[in-house]
Structure formats: structure tokens, C-alpha cells
């Protein structure tokens, strides 16, 4: 208990001192996570819509793969990205391993299946008669999708929130493909692991507060967007 209280005190002191390294780590965490979620959203939602609204041979197999991907262990994702970016790997010539780009790739790999899978479920749950009604109103295909996106807004934003949650909490893959290099690829989760291993619980606690604050702010904004216009 003493350790916890002492750690919290030191954490607050550290946060108030305005250490530039901590802000650099926080900024990189935010940049990397938001980029990964944005790309996963832009790619995942159209694929999820397509899978939810259409039927084609092999669709079920694809859904099984996506559902397995929703539970993909981050270290496995990290391993795949490492092999892809390794000097002798297919993208080895670009020297992308141990860079923020590699962390973004690994985070996309873990968040994309979540966004695809949950978007697909949201669209599959839309009443078929609603599709018919929208067609009857004279909507083009694009207008139909826009109207359906609005109908499924809550579920779609839940998918994005879940994807962000997975990304912000991710450590194994980021450690593996980023290398936790000071000033370059060190993000909040990898820093916490490192500080704990060094026995610096106060620093680890301070970083964990920052991580939680980030997660809280982003989730707060997304939840507000999700619940907006729900007129009582």
C-alpha cells in the first residue's frame, strides 16, 4: 500500500514537472494509435458493409477468418509484421522495422478485424424491409449506404471504440516491431513494461495515468459522437 501511495505521489510530481520525454512518448502514442484506428476504420467499414449486405461464395469462410482475427494475439501480429519488414523479408529493402510505421502496421492488423467484424454484424442486423423501404424511396446505392450508416451509427461507433481500445492497450506487437527505442518508437505501453521491469513503479504509474487519460478522452469523444442526436 505504501508503495502505491508513494508511487502515486511521485507520478503526480513527474507529470507536473513537464518532462519533455514523457510528452514525446504520449504524443507518439496518440499519433500511432489514431493513425492505426483511422486506417482500420476507412478500410474496415466498407469491407464490413459489403460482408453484411451481400452474399457470395466464400463469404462464410471470410467471416470465420475475420472472427479469428478479432482475437489475434498481438505477439502473433508482431511476429508477422516483423517477418514482413525484416531485412530479408518481402519489404526488407524499405528499412521500416523498428519505426512508428511498423507499430501502426501491427496495430492495424489487430484492430482491422474488430472493425470489419462488428460493422458486418451491425449491417446484417438491419431489417431487410428497411433496405426495401430505402430502395422504394428512390435512393441510389450510395444514398442507401449513407442512410444505413446513419441507422447503424451506434453500432459502427461501438466498433471504432472497440478497435481503439485494442490499439491503445496493445504492447506485445509494438514492443516486437518497434523495439521500444528511446525517442523513436517508445510509446506509453512499452515504456510501462520497461519501467516495471526496472522496478521504477512510480514512473510506470505516472505513465499509466497518462495512458488511461488518453483512453478516457478519446473514448469520451467517440461516445459523445455515438450518442449525439438521440433526442429524448
Amino acid at each position: 500500500m505504501e508503495l502505491l501511495i508513494e508511487g502515486m505521489k511521485k507520478a503526480i510530481e513527474m507529470l507536473l514537472s513537464g518532462d519533455p520525454e514523457i510528452f514525446q512518448i504520449t504524443w507518439l502514442t496518440l499519433r500511432v494509435s489514431l493513425t492505426a484506428v483511422l486506417i482500420s476504420t476507412l478500410v474496415g467499414i466498407p469491407i464490413g458493409i459489403l460482408l453484411g449486405l451481400t452474399r457470395f461464395p466464400g463469404r462464410r469462410l471470410l467471416l470465420i477468418i475475420i472472427n479469428i482475427g478479432m482475437g489475434l494475439p498481438p505477439v502473433v501480429a508482431g511476429l508477422w509484421i516483423t517477418m514482413l519488414l525484416w531485412r530479408s523479408g518481402p519489404l526488407g529493402d524499405f528499412s521500416l522495422l523498428y519505426s512508428p510505421f511498423a507499430i501502426v502496421l501491427a496495430q492495424i492488423l489487430v484492430s482491422l478485424p474488430i472493425i470489419i467484424g462488428l460493422t458486418c454484424s451491425a449491417f446484417q442486423q438491419i431489417d431487410e424491409k428497411m433496405l426495401l423501404q430505402i430502395r422504394a424511396l428512390g435512393a441510389t446505392k450510395l444514398q442507401s449506404v449513407t442512410l444505413l450508416l446513419r441507422e447503424a451509427k451506434i453500432a459502427i461507433l461501438a466498433a471504432i471504440i472497440a478497435g481503439f481500445g485494442r490499439v491503445i492497450a496493445e504492447v506485445g506487437a509494438a514492443m516486437m516491431v518497434g523495439g521500444n527505442i528511446r525517442g523513436e518508437t517508445r510509446i506509453l505501453t512499452t515504456s510501462i513494461v520497461m519501467e516495471v521491469s526496472k522496478g521504477n513503479f512510480d514512473v510506470a504509474l505516472a505513465l499509466s495515468f497518462l495512458l488511461m487519460s488518453l483512453a478516457f478522452i478519446i473514448t469520451f469523444l467517440l461516445t459523445n459522437l455515438q450518442q449525439r442526436n438521440k433526442i429524448q
Binding site: 428497411m130 441507422e151 451509427k153
Partner: peptide
Amino acid sequence: LQQTLIFDT
């Protein structure tokens, strides 16, 4: 249509 299908707005 038979079922009242109105948008969530």
C-alpha cells in the same frame, strides 16, 4: 410497406 419503417432521426 406493411411494417412502419422509420429512420432513427
